[in-house]
Each structure stands twice: as C-alpha cells, then as structure tokens.
Amino acid sequence: MRLLNSFVGLSLLLGWALFAATTGSAAGAGRLINCHEKNRGLVTRTRPDACEGRVVSDAEAASIRQRRQDYVKESLGVNVSPSVLGKRMAGVGAGFFVDDKGTILTNAHIVKGCSTITVSPPGQKSSPARLEEISLALDLALLKTNLRSRRHAVFAPADHRVSGEVAIIGYPSQGSPQQTPILTKGTLPDTGSRPTAARPLPLKVAVRPGNSGGPVLDASGRVIGVVFAAIDTKRVYQQTGQLARDIGMAIPNGISLPFMTRNGIQPTLADSPKASPDLLKEAKRYLARVECWL
C-alpha cells in the first residue's frame, strides 16, 4: 500500500495546486494562463510574462495533467482495482497456474484471513481470485480465477530424485513489493535418496519475502517443489553457534501433487527432462503475483 498511497498523495498534491492556482483573487484570475513546460511535462497557472513554455487551453492542460498522472502510476507499478479500494495490502507472494481453467497453486499462509485476494500475471492487471481450497497443515492453497494463462506448470514425478542446480521464481521484496518476477539460482543437496512426503526439500538459495508460493524448478523447468520458508539465520546461530545462510525450504511434489488430485486438479507430469534454455521466460507464462488485502 505504500506505493498506492504515494500515488494518491501525488494526485491530491496536483489537485490542490490546481485548486490554489485557479481560485485566486478575482483581480488576478484574469491575468493567469496555462503554461506547458514541455521539458518537464508540467502545466502551471501563471502570468503570461512568466511563462517559459507554450500557452495551452484548459482542455489541453487537463489532458496533459492526466497523462502525467497515468505515467506516474505506471512507473510506480500500481494496479488500482475497484475490488481493493478502501483496503490495505497485507502481503504479497507468488503462485502459479496448474491447469488451463485458471487454477493457481500457492501457500496457505499467503492467503489465510484475506478479505480480498487478487492475482497479477506478468504484464497484466490485477484480477480477483477466489479461495477454492486451503490446507494450513500442508501450507497449500488453490485459487480460482477467470484468467486463462498461456501455459500451466509441468511437474516432475513425486518420486523423482532431485539434486544439483535449481531455481526459484517469485517476487522477492527489495524494500517494497516487487512488481516483476525474479529468478534466483541455487542448489539442492544430493541426499542419496528419493524425496518423501514427510520431509521438505532443503534449498541452498536466497529465499526472501515474496518468494513464498513460487515454484522450485529443476534445470529443465519442471516444478519439483513449492517455496514456503527460509531458515532463520539469527535463530539458528543462537541455538547452534553455526551460520546457516541462504537456506530455504520447499514443499515437495509428494505433498503438492496429492493435494491437487484430491481437489480435482490433474497436474501435468513429465517423466523425462527437456531442454529449457530460458527458465524465467517459460515460467512467466504461468506465474502470478498473489496479493492479500484486508
């Protein structure tokens, strides 16, 4: 909401400046004109002899101001949706489409208790989403939308042995909510055994707020897990005396696949890995930012 408040504040400031300029004394009102300073993209009310730009009509001045406000809103990456007016953003995470019917898989802790949920696929505006199913025990949730993604995620089989290089894709916070998805590379240690539903996947990767709910991909782009947590480095050090930097945890397919199946979703599986030269480009086709509003 910080970005949204910034835009609203700017709009009020511009509106007040216009009000102040156009409601001066009756004696001075007739001597004011609309002056368009092209280099700055601004329109001000000023005296004719003080104008260093082009004199424009009231209608053109209003159009220029509106274009500037639209530009500021776009630059800030704000999606203003009537469904969230009057609400505050409580959290941001990731999710991804798992079928061609607009179903998104994400973490339960991202959408728990939200009065409104919206989703934003890359390059698209926010759209409302409905909580279809949630499991707090598994930290998984399914959202229903009216969107149709260009592609949905492909999963590795639940018993597939995973190790080596992996990548996570989400919206990691960088001081403010991230608007575009970011790929972060890491590794998954080879434990010498196949993953089980009882054991989460440990990831040697920098997990940040906003990564939760995003997919963990193997080198071929198959989903092998869902990011849900990061190890608390400070707490681990206090308890063990050891530094555990950039350690994340993911929900393995042995948990997420049965969860989807029980709720009527038939996830797409790929037994054999395929070449995927650009993981981020491919993932953008089925990824979405998940936004919780209160």
Score class of each variant (00 low, 15 high):
C114D: 03
C114T: 10
C114L: 04
T116C: 01
T116Q: 10
I117S: 03
T118G: 01
V119C: 00
V119I: 09
V119Y: 01
S120N: 11
P121H: 11
P121I: 04
P122T: 01
P122A: 02
G123E: 02
G123I: 02
Q124N: 07
Q124F: 01
S126Q: 09
S127E: 15
P128Q: 13
A129S: 06
I134Y: 03
S135A: 05
S135H: 03
S135L: 05
A137H: 08
A137R: 14
D139V: 12
L142H: 10
L142M: 07
L143K: 01
K144Y: 00
T145K: 07
T145V: 10
T145F: 06
N146I: 00
L147M: 11
R148V: 12
R148Q: 14
R148H: 13
S149Q: 15
R151S: 13
R151N: 11
H152W: 15
V154W: 04
F155V: 09
A156L: 10
P157I: 04
P157V: 06
A158M: 07
A158C: 03
D159L: 11
R161Y: 05
R161I: 10
R161S: 12
S163I: 05
G164N: 06
V166C: 02
V166T: 08
A167P: 08
I168A: 07
I169L: 15
G170E: 08
Y171N: 05
Y171P: 00
Y171Q: 07
Y171D: 02
P172T: 09
Q174L: 08
Q174T: 14
G175Y: 09
G175S: 11
S176C: 00
S176N: 09
S176P: 00
P177L: 10
Q178M: 13
Q178W: 06
Q179K: 14
T180Y: 06
T180S: 13
P181H: 11
L183Q: 15
L183S: 12
L183K: 15
L183C: 08
T184Q: 07
T184K: 05
G186C: 02
T187D: 08
T187V: 14
L188M: 05
P189I: 09
D190A: 14
D190W: 13
D190M: 13
